[in-house]
């Protein structure tokens, strides 16, 4: 009984951690521009697909394939900002959001052209043999997912609270005018935000690919669940997105385990709708933490 619960919890935390990484990416770009980047899920897809391609097809060893896949996705993120968002900088937020939707369709199409429509498996980083922890079967890849997420969260915390670039990103989010008057180049910050979000998405994609497989459309659902994590945690509040991601992942795993896996994907939609109806600022939303 309890072992079963722990088993579900473990798989919930594992997928939840990837939703958290994607959700943080949504929040970072939102903070720099009020834009919801619907191509966020495609960063996840690109990370997984590139890693698979570099490892399986190009024959690179994993320690080279993974960083290259992340770097490649970062380049795509920077290009997206430079060639799609930047030229339309003076357009309305809604227009910019529609541009990101267009970009997501374009990236999915591009991935199909280059890599085909098939599902691909990226081998797990340290094998598939489950580790038995008093009855709970722990997939080694789960440990990689959770471990990397913890490290990334610690690094992000250090970055946002201790470095000038991190502080500038927070400053832009709280008060764009004052940040500009302090000498922050908000266009550079937006560019950097796209690069950072792409890196986080790609990392999630590389980590989850051995568990869920990777294919050109894999980013649709992952992006949506990351969005759900960001909304639930309070859009623009990266730490909230982490909690949000874990809640979405765990709810999903419990629903799949105790009710039916047929309802698994519905959980995220229900959470989005409930959040928007009952607490539009999310659990830790801006208005909750800021005293103005």
């Amino acid at each position: 009984m309890f072992t079963e619960f722990l088993q579900f919890l473990l798989s919930g935390v594992t997928v939840g951690a990837t939703y958290a990484l994607v959700g943080v990416g949504f929040s970072i770009i939102y903070n720099a521009s009020q834009v919801i980047n619907f191509a966020q899920g495609e960063f996840v897809m690109l990370g997984g697909m590139m890693a698979w391609f570099l490892f399986e097809r190009a024959g690179l060893p994993m320690p080279a394939a993974v960083p290259l896949a992340i770097a490649g996705t970062v380049l795509v993120g920077l290009a997206l900002e430079k060639f799609a968002i930047e030229p339309a900088r003076n357009a309305s937020i809604v227009t910019l959001i529609i541009i990101t939707i267009g970009a997501s369709i374009f990236l999915r199409g591009g991935a199909q052209l280059v890599w085909g429509r098939d599902f691909h498996a990226l081998p797990a980083l340290s094998g598939d043999a489950p580790i038995d922890l008093s009855g709970v079967a722990v997939n080694p890849q789960s440990l990689w997912v959770m471990g990397c997420t913890v490290v990334v969260v610690i690094l992000l915390h250090w970055f946002f609270s201790r470095t000038m670039t991190g502080r500038a990103m927070r400053a832009v989010a709280f008060n764009m005018l004052a940040a500009q008057l302090a000498g922050v180049n908000n266009r550079l910050i937006l560019m950097f935000s796209f690069g950072l979000s792409a890196a986080l998405g790609a990392l999630a994609g590389v980590l989850i690919a051995p568990i869920t497989l990777t294919y050109p459309d894999v980013g649709i659902m992952l992006g949506l669940k990351g969005f759900c994590a960001a909304i639930l945690g309070g859009l623009g509040y990266p730490y909230g997105a982490i909690v949000g991601g874990l809640i979405v992942g765990i709810s999903e795993a419990m629903t799949a385990g105790y009710v039916s896996s047929a309802y698994k994907d519905a959980v995220a939609f229900v959470i989005i709708l409930m959040t928007l109806f009952f607490m539009p600022n999310g659990l830790f939303g801006r208005r909750g933490i800021e005293r103005v």
Binding site: M164, R167, F174, N175, A182, V184, V292
Partner: peptide, 17 residues
């Protein structure tokens, strides 16, 4: 237009960005 949620010291450091 101070950065309300940021600490006083961080506000000052931002001034020296």
């Amino acid at each position: 237009q101070v950065f309300a949620p940021m600490r006083v010291e961080e506000n000052l450091l931002m001034g020296g960005y």
